[in-house]
C-alpha cells in the first residue's frame, strides 16, 4: 500500500472522524467474514493497514511530513474468524446432519465428528428423551413448560487430573461455581454431561444440562497414548554406564526400577500395569551430563578415547 488515503478513499485533508467513517464503511462491505470475494478481502486489508496508520493523529502527522512511510506498517497477518470457522471441529458450530434427509449417513461419513471416537456428537443429545422435556400444559399457548437450554463449555484440565481422575472447580459464565468430577483416564475431546446444570427452564420445565468438552493440557515430563503413559526420566552419566537402581515417579507414587548397564537416551523401559486403568507406564531415559565437566572426567575420557573410541554416526548418509 502506497497511499493510505487512497486505500480509504478520503482526501489528505479529511478529518479524523471522516477517516474513521471511511474505514467503517469499507469494513461493513468488505469484511472477509461477511464477503467471500478475495478482492473485497484485499480492499479490507489495505483499509485496515491505512486506518492503523492514520487513526493516531500523531502518527498521521509524521506520515504527512514524510518521516515514516506506509510500508513497514503492515500488521501481523490477521486471522479472521472465517479462517477458524471453516476448519472442522469449530466449537461454535452446532454441526448436524439434519437437513440432509436420506443422505445424512453420507454427510456423517464425510464430515461427521471423528475426534478419537469420543468426540462430541450433537445427535447424541438432540433426540429421544430430550424432547420429552418439552410439553405443553393445559393446551394453551401462553402457559407452557419447556426444559431449559443445554449449555456447552470447553474445559481445560491438567494432565494429572485427566490421567488420575479428580475434581476441578470452575466458575461458569453465569457465576455459578461447580465442582466437576473428572473420570480416571479422561480423554482429550471427551464430553462430560452435568445433568441440570444448563439453562433455566420455563414454567415447570426443568433446567437443561451442561456439556463440558475436555481439553487435556500438556505436561513437561509426561505424555500419554490412550491408557499408556510415558515419563521422561533423566539419568546421570555414571548411572547410564554402570546401571543403577533408581526411583521413578508413577501416577500413584514412586517405585524402584533397575537401570541396565549401558542405558542410553531414548531407550524405553516398561513398568507393566502402572499406566491408567491397567495400562503400561513407559520410562524413556535421557542421559544428562554433569553440570560441569571436571578435570577428573576429562582426563579419564581423554585416556579412554585412545583405545575405545567409537562412532555412533557410522552408516549415516550425507
Amino acid at each position: 500500500m502506497d497511499d493510505p488515503y487512497k486505500a480509504l478513499g478520503v482526501s489528505k485533508t479529511a478529518s479524523q472522524d471522516e477517516i474513521k467513517k471511511a474505514y467503517r464503511k469499507i469494513a461493513k462491505t468488505d469484511h472477509p467474514d461477511l464477503n467471500p470475494d478475495p478482492a473485497a478481502g484485499e480492499r479490507f486489508k489495505a483499509a485496515s493497514v491505512a486506518y492503523d496508520l492514520l487513526k493516531d493523529p500523531g502518527q498521521r502527522a509524521r506520515f504527512d511530513a514524510g518521516e515514516i512511510d506506509a510500508q513497514g506498517q503492515e500488521r501481523p497477518q490477521q486471522r479472521y474468524y472465517r479462517d477458524f470457522a471453516e476448519q472442522g471441529g469449530n466449537p461454535y458450530r452446532q454441526q448436524s446432519s439434519a437437513g440432509y434427509g436420506d443422505y445424512s449417513d453420507v454427510f456423517e461419513d464425510l464430515f461427521g465428528n471423528r475426534r478419537g471416537g469420543s468426540g462430541f456428537d450433537p445427535r447424541d443429545f438432540a433426540g429421544g428423551e430430550e424432547f420429552q422435556g418439552f410439553r405443553r400444559s393445559g393446551g394453551t399457548r401462553q402457559n407452557f413448560d419447556m426444559r431449559g437450554q443445554d449449555l456447552r463449555y470447553d474445559l481445560d484440565i491438567d494432565f494429572m487430573t485427566a490421567a488420575k481422575g479428580g475434581t476441578t472447580r470452575i466458575t461458569l459464565p453465569d457465576g455459578n461455581t461447580l465442582d466437576v468430577k473428572i473420570p480416571e483416564g479422561a480423554a482429550d475431546g471427551q464430553v462430560i454431561r452435568l445433568r441440570g446444570k444448563g439453562g433455566e427452564g420455563y414454567g415447570e420445565g426443568g433446567r437443561g444440562d451442561a456439556y463440558l468438552s475436555l481439553h487435556v493440557g500438556a505436561h513437561p515430563d509426561w505424555s500419554r497414548d490412550g491408557n499408556d503413559v510415558t515419563i521422561t526420566l533423566p539419568v546421570s552419566l555414571d548411572e547410564a554406564v554402570l546401571g543403577a537402581r533408581v526411583e521413578v515417579p508413577t501416577l500413584t507414587g514412586k517405585v524402584a526400577m533397575n537401570l541396565p548397564k549401558g542405558a542410553t537416551t531414548g531407550q524405553k523401559l516398561r513398568l507393566k500395569g502402572k499406566g491408567i486403568k491397567g495400562g503400561n507406564q513407559y520410562v524413556e531415559l535421557k542421559v544428562v551430563m554433569p553440570a560441569e565437566i571436571d578435570d577428573d572426567l576429562a582426563e579419564f575420557m581423554g585416556k579412554w578415547r585412545q583405545d575405545h573410541g567409537y562412532d555412533p554416526r557410522q552408516g549415516m548418509g550425507g
Binding site: D154, L155, D156, T168, R169, I170, T171, L212
Partner: peptide, 8 residues
C-alpha cells in the same frame, strides 16, 4: 464461550 478451568 471462554474456556473454563480451575484457574479461571
Amino acid at each position: 464461550r471462554p474456556v473454563v478451568s480451575d484457574a479461571g
